[in-house]
Computed example of a mutant assay.
Amino acid sequence: MSWLARHLTLWSRTLGPLRPLSAPALCARYRHESWNVARELASVGRARRVVTARLGDWGMTDLADTAELLVSELVTNALRHTRGPVRLNLRVRGFHLRCEVEDADSAGPARRIADAEAEGGRGIELVDMLAEHWGSTDTGTGKAMWFELPIPGPGHTDALAAHPPARPAL
């Protein structure tokens, strides 16, 4: 994209009409919600419902199915393979939804190849296929497994092309 095209795009967004307060949350630049996850398998279903409800509140129902599936995978992995507290975070920054599942184990995910008859072992592959970005970040108390989904909407493709997000190393 040329210098002139980038600046025209920037100025067209700057001079565009302001978003009214009644507009959907899809245009929000930053939102954050966080929940503790109880250490029981029933918490996986609760996490799915909370994510779907919050995305509905934020006007992002287009992302609900994918986010629900991927949150389910990360919460299940945290409950099955770690000990200690688990926390679910949803964040909207710019044109991306970021979902994080924090736990007290510092070990990152182990990718493995599941054979055709295995009942498990495909969670990280699903995250890799469906998320635009994903990874693991060290925290002061363990790690946060996260993924990002692009928020669909008019004009978002131009903004993402002009400012591509950095992909952190795993």
Score class of each variant (00 low, 15 high):
2 S>I: 12
4 L>P: 02
4 L>D: 08
5 A>W: 09
5 A>R: 13
12 S>M: 13
13 R>F: 09
15 L>S: 08
16 G>S: 15
16 G>N: 15
19 R>I: 11
19 R>F: 13
19 R>L: 15
24 P>M: 03
26 L>F: 12
28 A>K: 01
32 H>A: 14
32 H>C: 14
33 E>H: 11
34 S>A: 13
35 W>V: 04
35 W>G: 01
40 E>S: 08
41 L>I: 09
42 A>M: 09
46 R>A: 06
47 A>H: 10
47 A>I: 13
49 R>I: 08
49 R>A: 15
51 V>H: 05
51 V>M: 15
53 A>V: 14
56 G>F: 02
56 G>Y: 03
57 D>Y: 05
57 D>L: 13
60 M>E: 14
61 T>Y: 01
62 D>G: 11
63 L>G: 12
65 D>S: 08
70 L>F: 07
71 V>E: 01
74 L>P: 01
75 V>E: 04
77 N>V: 04
78 A>G: 04
79 L>R: 01
81 H>G: 04
84 G>M: 14
90 L>R: 00
91 R>P: 00
91 R>T: 08
96 H>L: 08
98 R>W: 04
102 E>W: 00
103 D>A: 01
104 A>Y: 10
105 D>V: 14
106 S>V: 12
107 A>N: 07
109 P>K: 02
112 R>V: 15
119 E>C: 04
123 G>Y: 01
126 L>T: 14
127 V>Q: 03
128 D>H: 03
129 M>C: 10
130 L>F: 11
130 L>Y: 09
133 H>V: 11
134 W>C: 15
135 G>S: 11
137 T>C: 11
137 T>E: 14
138 D>I: 10
138 D>E: 15
140 G>P: 09
142 G>V: 02
147 F>K: 00
149 L>M: 07
149 L>H: 04
149 L>E: 07
149 L>Y: 06
153 G>V: 00
153 G>E: 01
154 P>R: 05
155 G>Y: 10
158 D>I: 02
158 D>P: 02
161 A>E: 04
